[in-house]
């Protein structure tokens, strides 16, 4: 690597960065550009895509009310699951963060334990629990609270519930790290300046935990967008989201439409990620406004 002993920082910087850059370039950027190229074509019955360049896929997504319905539903699902996870995750993290390291580790292990089971198996687990003959319905029926079984599956609630159990740990871990990074002196300083516990939280703890909140909400939102298995198994076809349409397009060999829908999904992700960052301003913890 260069001139041995006199290798300067600049060289080291690029030498260390080159492998991951190359990796991302070859295995992410190039296929992504390729995918974009595909999305600019029509479908073909015999080839992966047609030969003429066209923007019709994007035009369809932008003008067809069916896609609008699905995009809005995707957005709504992502945001509401994100908010649910934020509220529950923050509360959990707030309780776990101040515990002694050992206890905290054990609590985290409990929290992460569900992630050790595959998404598919977990979704089937929820089916067994939420089904007509499932645990919830049998319990409710045995206590006489309901006469007939409740229809819990194939609904937005089922998807939200299923996804929350998967995504909550991401939120909790992100926020715990952020909370533990907050110097206790800031909280005592706020108290010394007459802030009651609520104001201390609003004015000091919440803004200082914003990096964790930002990474947690981003993770949850982005994972929700792509959580095909859970959405399909617990939501059924009536709860189709954008990612389900990508799958459907692929099953029908309409690769260009699938590619265009993927880019719609990507655009949605980027817009929401931008909004989250603009709203939470995690950079302010670094004192940059």
């Amino acid at each position: 690597m260069g001139s041995g002993l006199s290798m300067n920082r600049q060289t080291a910087f690029w030498a260390l960065l080159a492998p991951p850059l190359l990796f991302v370039g070859i295995f992410f950027v190039v296929p992504l550009l390729n995918l974009f190229w595909v999305s600019l074509h029509g479908a073909s019955s015999s080839e992966l895509f047609g030969s003429d360049l066209t923007g019709e896929n994007y035009y369809r997504i932008l003008t067809d009310s069916f896609y609008h319905t699905i995009i809005l539903r995707t957005l709504w699902a992502g945001l509401s699951i994100m908010l649910l996870c934020l509220v529950l995750g923050y509360a959990t993290a707030y309780v776990i963060a101040p515990l002694p390291p050992r206890t905290r580790l054990i609590m985290l292990l409990f929290l992460v334990a569900p992630l050790m089971v595959s998404n598919v198996i977990r979704a089937y687990g929820w089916i067994a629990i939420l089904g007509r003959q499932g645990v919830v319905n049998s319990m409710l029926r045995s206590t006489g609270l309901i006469d007939g079984p409740l229809l819990l599956l194939n609904s937005f609630e089922a998807v939200a519930f299923g996804l929350m159990t998967i995504l909550l740990p991401y939120m909790v871990v992100s926020i715990i790290n952020a909370l533990n990074a907050i110097d206790r002196q800031y909280i005592e300083a706020a108290q010394s300046l007459k802030a009651n516990p609520f104001r201390t939280f609003i004015e000091v703890v919440w803004p200082l935990s914003s990096p964790g909140v930002a990474s947690g909400t981003l993770l949850v939102f982005l994972l929700t967008l792509s959580a095909y298995v859970t959405i399909t198994l617990l939501g059924g076809p009536r709860m189709k989201l954008l990612v389900s349409l990508v799958f459907d397009a692929v099953s029908g060999f309409r690769w260009p439409l699938a590619a265009a829908l993927s880019f719609a999904l990507l655009a949605l992700a980027l817009v929401v990620a931008g909004l989250i960052l603009a709203l939470l301003r995690p950079g302010r913890v670094q004192g940059r406004g």
Binding site: D183, Y186, A189, Q191, S192, T200, V204, L208, R284
Partner: peptide
């Protein structure tokens, strides 16, 4: 009595200025 209801002010070791 809890700290925020006591009549004192404090300067901390590392100043504890709110960075945001």
């Amino acid at each position: 009595i809890v700290p925020h209801k006591r009549d004192f002010a404090m300067v901390f070791q590392n100043f504890a200025l709110f960075p945001h």
